[in-house]
Amino acid sequence: MTMVGAEAEDEHWLDDAAGRLVRPYTVSNGRTAPSTPMELLSMVMATGRAPNGELEPDHAEALILCGSPMTVAEVAARLRLPAVVTKILLSDLVDAGAVRTRSPGPTAEPTNTAVLESILNALQRRL
C-alpha cells in the first residue's frame, strides 16, 4: 500500500515508536541560543496578542501550551524537545509579543530540592 501527498511526507518525519525524526536544530533554524534569557523555572504565559504571520507548527503548539501559566521545563517536556530548543521557540514568541515570561522568585532557587520535587511531581502528573 502506497501513501500519497502529505500522508507520505508525515510518514517520513514521524514514527510511532521513536517519535519525532526531525533534528532539534531544524526546529530552531540552527540557532543555539534564545534571544530572550530565561531559566527552566521561568514562568511563561500567552499574552493574547497574535503574532504577525503564520506560525511554524512547533511555535503554534508552544503558544497553545502557554494558554495557562507553566514553566519552561513543563513546555519542553510537553513538546518533547530539548530545553534550549524550547527556550528558542519561546523567545521567538516573546519577540513577537505573543508570550511573556517571569523569572522565578527568589524562593525558586535551582538547588532548592522542594521546588525541584514539586516540578517533577507536576510533570509526572501531566505526562
Rank of each mutant, 00 (worst) to 15 (best):
residue 109 E to L: 14
residue 48 G to D: 02
residue 101 T to M: 06
residue 94 V to E: 05
residue 3 M to S: 12
residue 31 R to D: 04
residue 90 L to N: 02
residue 111 T to P: 09
residue 26 T to K: 15
residue 26 T to Q: 15
residue 120 L to W: 12
residue 114 A to M: 10
residue 93 L to P: 07
residue 119 I to H: 05
residue 40 L to H: 05
residue 54 E to I: 07
residue 11 E to K: 13
residue 114 A to C: 06
residue 11 E to H: 14
residue 112 N to T: 02
residue 56 E to N: 10
residue 86 T to G: 00
residue 8 A to Y: 11
residue 24 P to W: 02
residue 71 T to N: 01
residue 92 D to C: 12
residue 45 M to F: 08
residue 36 T to P: 05
residue 62 A to L: 07
residue 14 L to T: 12
residue 82 P to A: 01
residue 55 L to A: 01
residue 97 G to W: 02
residue 10 D to L: 15
residue 98 A to R: 08
residue 97 G to M: 03
residue 6 A to Q: 12
residue 49 R to P: 04
residue 107 T to Q: 13
residue 27 V to I: 10
residue 2 T to D: 15
residue 5 G to A: 14
residue 66 C to G: 00
residue 108 A to Y: 09
residue 125 R to Q: 03
residue 99 V to C: 00
residue 84 V to P: 04
residue 13 W to F: 13
residue 112 N to S: 03
residue 28 S to W: 11
residue 15 D to L: 09
residue 29 N to M: 13
residue 99 V to L: 00
residue 33 A to C: 15
residue 31 R to G: 05
residue 119 I to D: 07
residue 112 N to V: 03
residue 31 R to C: 07
residue 55 L to R: 04
residue 62 A to K: 00
residue 36 T to I: 09
residue 59 H to S: 07
residue 94 V to C: 09
residue 103 S to L: 03
residue 11 E to L: 12
residue 55 L to M: 01
residue 122 A to Q: 13
residue 45 M to K: 13
residue 104 P to M: 00
residue 89 L to K: 05
residue 64 I to P: 00
residue 44 V to G: 02
residue 40 L to I: 04
residue 68 S to V: 08
residue 24 P to R: 05
residue 97 G to V: 01
residue 114 A to L: 11
residue 68 S to Q: 11
residue 45 M to I: 13
residue 41 L to T: 01
residue 26 T to V: 15
residue 90 L to M: 07
residue 121 N to P: 02
residue 19 G to D: 12
residue 65 L to I: 01
residue 98 A to Q: 00
residue 39 E to S: 09
residue 16 D to E: 05
residue 122 A to F: 09
residue 49 R to Y: 01
residue 11 E to F: 14
residue 38 M to I: 04
residue 31 R to N: 07
residue 5 G to M: 12
residue 117 E to I: 05
residue 14 L to C: 13
residue 10 D to W: 14
residue 111 T to N: 12
residue 114 A to G: 10
residue 87 K to L: 06
residue 57 P to C: 09
residue 52 N to C: 15
residue 109 E to W: 13
residue 38 M to P: 05
residue 83 A to Q: 10
residue 10 D to C: 11
residue 99 V to S: 02
residue 69 P to Q: 10
residue 58 D to K: 10
residue 11 E to A: 14
residue 99 V to Y: 01
residue 48 G to P: 00
residue 68 S to K: 06
residue 108 A to M: 11
